[in-house]
Design a protein around this nucleic acid. Structure first.
Length: 944
RNA sequence: GCGCGUGUGGCGUAAUUGGUAGCCGCGCCAGACUUAGGAUCUGGUGUCGUGAGACGUGUAGGUUCGAGUCCUAUCACGCGCACCA
């Protein structure tokens, strides 16, 4: 009987649904295990073969854990808000909700065919009101919280208000936008609006006037991780810096915890390193400089406090608030012209064109260590958003300052013994400090650093700054607050209305605030976000409901926020929602949260390293502070699956003809390579008939063949519709079955590795499953397995496999597992194994990889239950023992011959036998061996 | 520029973590059974050499009885950060 995968797979997929095989509930009697995939954005192209790679890997792990007796949560859902659906809507008028549902249905169909053990009862969609209820709720919690640096935790904003009422800002150490100072009395004297404005400076979700990445073509702002090389990640449109009032999340408050948390989780070093880079912690010193002949003071940040004596000028960022204060009348015109010029440059232009530019402000700053007055310049090489937006320039030891000094003819003072700064700066943090004044020489400062190493000098200067109150030791982070508003339609609406220009939260009990219908998905004529088209988008504070815009009276009815939330809002806490997906009273119940805790194994791509994986960790830490999520880190172990690239195929058309020439002969003609649909090519051989009917213009095509075949060229490219190299898993399932697809995707190589999709080896995997089938059924359809005692050889074969596969699954080395299966099946085939017990073990081992086939065989073996409820077999070391062991005998490391010994022979016996051996004696040739090394079960090396 | 990672047959890969390369699969070659086969089965397949053997893990050194694995330098590719003071 043939291995009929179609029948088998359909049968079991149906049964799994009927029996709710993969439904899981909290069960205190079992240990939990939470496996999670990054949920997909349901795009119009459908699922391609790259998606399932991670899903299969995690499904194998989930099934394996279940067989080991764990209660496994393995959910799936959809990241359903996003730009493509909206852009499609703008072009076609099709409502994004409809497109999204269609795409989701297609995804689901495709996923079902592959046989995953997802618990679909827990499915979430980020665009469901029942889901985004909790996205909005979390946002409100952030609005109602501030971050206390002392206790390293988010706190309710009411505590901050209480503090202000008692002692103003005195004794406060909290995360904020701007350092404010006021007394309790001053606080009480403020109006309601003023107080709200002050509080905004501390809220974790706040409305901030910040420089944002504005993308004119997309008509929206973007977060830093959505901008790559100065253009938008999606679409590649230019991005400019613009000051706008936007919702932001104070992610920066959590910078240190986000950094520290990395040491407690099991992620790859490279991914942790990427996050460390992104967080960008740098320890340094803030030093105050007075402006000469003025009351104005300003602060700079430096990591090189040791270079205080080499400061020859100062630089302000063009956007710095100090610029107008420090610009003298004489320089006014020149400075304004410069600001004008820099403002016009986009981020991309600034990156591309690194000319040195700048302008003198007219002011001088006084170095608090030397009393020297140095000129203050303005230049766009200093960033407004980092540190204080102002720097002290030490051209001798900073290459950027050096370039600036050379360009404008400013002095350069070297501070390290023996360094040569005539051609370039000496940036290295090594060497011995010189050129600092002798103690007591300047009236300003009695600090001398001469003779110290740079490290010592930095420490000494820090100490000095602290003691003399010239500034403070400071840690800076590159990580910025996340911009949380998008000028789009297809996203979560903010549960916010505006009164007197200030935002207020709509009552928690009235959530979710549902996304309204709009006539158009484009911004309004006045440039407002698409929600500006909604006719019912006002909030009645008395009734607590959405009402017609016409009724806005600013008394009880107020306008609602027109922005929506960005993509990462919905994906930041979805793993918590899966724990308790239908709860309409809380994001997650305490019971579910304390049972499932956090994700034990998270599988997804690296592309989210500085986006989702940072935001999620931040979001979870915030909820943890609130007591919602019991764990500080959401994803304990993370495995990054590699990308599956496309493998495009080409045909070669002879110029100006409709004749196509095979790959090997193309050099004899003048040809144009053309992409051809990979679905009509098999093992690089073109299906000529299919090609003719692929496109009308090829119907009359002619071919120059080699060996009777048309061979196509190929290249590895990104998998995309336009290159005709998208391979949908359905096709593979149709031809070979889901179990073959699953095993083949694993066989392709390590899960973490990126590789091109290539079906050239799939026949081998399919053949393996057929061979496995042949262990159970002969051609006549007779069922072969029988009761009985397994032979020693059978036991050895199967226990070798148990050991290998168990170890491999734990380390995600699925590709070698598949190889081990092939070896075992070949061995059992050669042994003509018919032993039920051995074949039952084989069936259970197969269950995570090829669940349909495994179920079928498990049933045939006479088990009434699903193989999912079987127990993972344990291997017995005793069966793996060899009777005898072959040793390689080497002389000075050169292998010469082999000898066989009983497995339990001791070293002395082996040594004696080897030395007494005739062949050995020839090599030893009367010499006395200097050393004899015996490697257990491997080698005897005799050093002469 | 800084940081991280990877280089092994014609191809995808493997190597008990320092133990004497190339498991498994594809492809290819030969044979068997077939009317036939893009089916199935058996054997072979790193390179050079008829052969014994020699050489082989990007390149060049080093440590070691022994190196794909460790160290140094160098090249190539990939990724991350990038005017971050």
């Amino acid at each position: 009987m043939e291995y009929n995968f179609r029948e088998i797979e359909q049968k079991w997929q149906k049964r799994w649904v009927e029996n709710k095989t993969y439904h899981v509930t909290e069960d205190e009697s079992k240990k939990k295990f939470y496996v999670l995939n990054m949920f997909p954005y349901p795009s119009g192209a459908g699922l391609h073969v790259g998606h399932p790679l991670g899903y299969i890997a995690s499904d194998i792990y989930a099934r394996y854990k279940r067989l080991q007796g764990f209660n496994v949560l393995n959910p799936m859902g959809y990241d359903a808000y996003g730009l493509p659906a909206e852009q499609y809507a703008i072009q076609t008028g099709q409502h994004p909700a409809i497109t999204t549902v269609n795409n989701i249905n297609r995804y689901r169909e495709q996923l079902d065919k592959i046989g995953f053990s997802f618990d679909w009862d827990r499915e979430v969609r980020t665009c469901d009101p029942g889901y985004y209820h909790w996205t909005q709720w979390a946002f409100q919690q952030m609005f109602g919280s501030f971050y206390c640096n002392t206790c390293q935790k988010a706190q309710p904003i009411s505590r901050l208000v209480a503090h202000f009422e008692q002692q103003g800002t005195d004794g406060l150490d909290v995360a904020c936008g701007e350092e404010l100072t006021f007394t309790a009395d001053e606080w009480k004297a403020k109006t309601e609006k003023e107080q709200q404005e002050v509080l905004m400076n501390y809220r974790i979700a706040y409305l901030g006037e910040t420089m944002v990445n504005w993308c004119p073509q997309l008509g929206t702002v973007l977060a830093n991780d959505e901008v790559v090389d100065g253009v938008s990640e999606r679409g590649g449109f230019p991005v400019v810096q613009k000051k706008m009032r936007q919702w932001c999340l104070r992610v920066s408050a959590y910078a240190q915890r986000l950094l520290d948390g990395l040491d407690t989780i099991d992620w790859t070093d490279s991914l942790k390193e990427t996050q460390r880079n992104w967080i960008g912690r740098s320890e340094g010193t803030e030093v105050r400089f007075k402006v000469k002949d003025s009351e104005v003071e300003f602060t700079i940040f430096t990591t090189r406090a040791d270079t205080m004596f080499g400061v020859t000028f100062m630089v302000l960022a063009p956007e710095s608030e100090l610029v107008p204060q420090l610009t003298t009348a004489a320089q006014q015109a020149e400075v304004e012209a410069y600001l004008d010029r820099t403002k016009k440059r986009t981020e991309r232009e600034r990156i591309a064109d690194r000319r040195v530019t700048g302008v003198f402000s007219g002011s001088y700053a006084v170095n608090p260590f030397t009393g020297d007055a140095v000129p203050v310049w303005i230049s766009d090489y200093v960033l407004a958003g980092y540190g204080t937006g102002a720097i002290m320039a030490v051209p001798a030891h900073d290459s950027r300052d050096y370039a600036f000094a050379k360009h404008f003819g400013l002095p350069i003072v070297p501070l390290v013994e023996g360094c040569d700064v005539s051609e370039e700066s000496f940036d290295a943090k090594e060497g011995i400090v010189c050129n600092s004044p002798k103690a007591g020489v300047t009236p300003y400062c009695d600090l001398s650093l001469n003779g110290l190493t740079i490290k010592e000098a930095i420490a000494a200067t820090k100490r000095y700054v602290k003691e003399h109150h010239l500034g403070r030791v400071k840690v800076n982070y590159r990580l910025r607050d996340a911009i949380f508003s998008r000028q789009r339609y297809w996203g979560e609406p903010f549960p916010v209305y505006y009164k007197d220009g200030m935002p207020y939260m709509i009552d928690e009990s009235k959530l979710p605030l549902e996304l309204p219908e709009v006539a158009k998905f484009l911004p309004t004529e006045t440039g407002e976000p698409p929600l500006g088209h909604a006719t019912r988008w006002a909030w009645d504070t008395e009734k607590g409901e959405v009402v017609e815009n016409a009724r806005i009276d600013q008394v009880t009815v107020f306008p609602l926020e027109l922005n929506t939330m960005p993509g990462f809002a919905g994906s930041s806490a979805y793993y918590l929602r899966y724990m308790d997906a239908h709860n309409d009273r809380a994001l997650v119940s305490e019971a579910a949260d304390s049972y499932w805790q956090n994700v034990d194994l998270y599988v997804g791509g690296t592309e989210h390293a500085t986006g989702h994986l940072i935001y999620s960790r931040f979001w979870n830490k915030f909820l943890h502070d609130l007591g919602i999520s019991v764990k500080e880190e959401p994803f304990q172990k993370l495995v990054n699956q590699g990308m599956i690239q496309g493998r495009s195929n080409f045909v070669y058309r002879i110029k100006d003809t409709n004749t196509f020439v095979s790959l090997g002969l193309k050099d004899q003609y003048d040809v144009t390579p053309l992409h051809v649909d990979v679905n009509i090519v098999s093992n690089d051989v073109l299906d000529v008939e299919a090609f003719k009917s692929w496109r009308p213009e090829y119907a009359t095509a002619e071919f120059i063949l080699e060996d009777g075949k048309y061979v196509c060229g190929w290249a590895v490219e990104k998998m995309s519709k336009s290159m005709f190299n998208v391979v949908n898993p359905d096709r593979i399932v149709e031809k070979y079955g889901a179990d073959t697809l699953r095993m083949y995707e694993m066989f392709l190589g390590p899960v973490e590795q990126s590789k091109p999709w290539d079906t050239n080896g799939i026949d081998g995997v399919h053949r393996f499953l057929k061979k496995l089938w042949a262990l159970f059924y002969n051609r006549a359809g007779e069922f072969l397995p029988q009761e009985g005692e397994p032979s020693k050889a059978e036991l050895k074969a199967i226990h070798k496999l148990i050991k290998k596969v168990t170890g491999d699954i734990e380390t995600f080395s699925y590709n070698t597992s598949v190889s081990a299966f092939m070896i075992c099946v070949n061995e059992l085939g050669q042994l003509k194994c018919r032993n039920k017990a051995v074949l039952a073990d084989l069936t259970v081992l197969l269950a995570p990889f090829a669940p349909h086939l495994s179920e079928e065989l498990w049933e045939a073996l006479g088990h009434g239950t699903s193989v999912c409820d079987a127990r993972w077999p344990q291997y017995n070391e005793a069966y793996l023992k060899e009777d005898s062991v072959k040793y390689t005998i080497s002389f000075n490391g050169k292998a010469r011959f082999t000898m066989e010994f009983p497995a339990d022979a001791d070293n002395a016996a082996i040594q004696a036998a080897v030395l007494g051996d005739e062949q050995s004696q020839k090599w030893i040739d009367g010499k006395t061996p200097k050393k004899i090394i015996i490697v257990p079960k491997k080698i005897v090396n005799i050093v002469l």
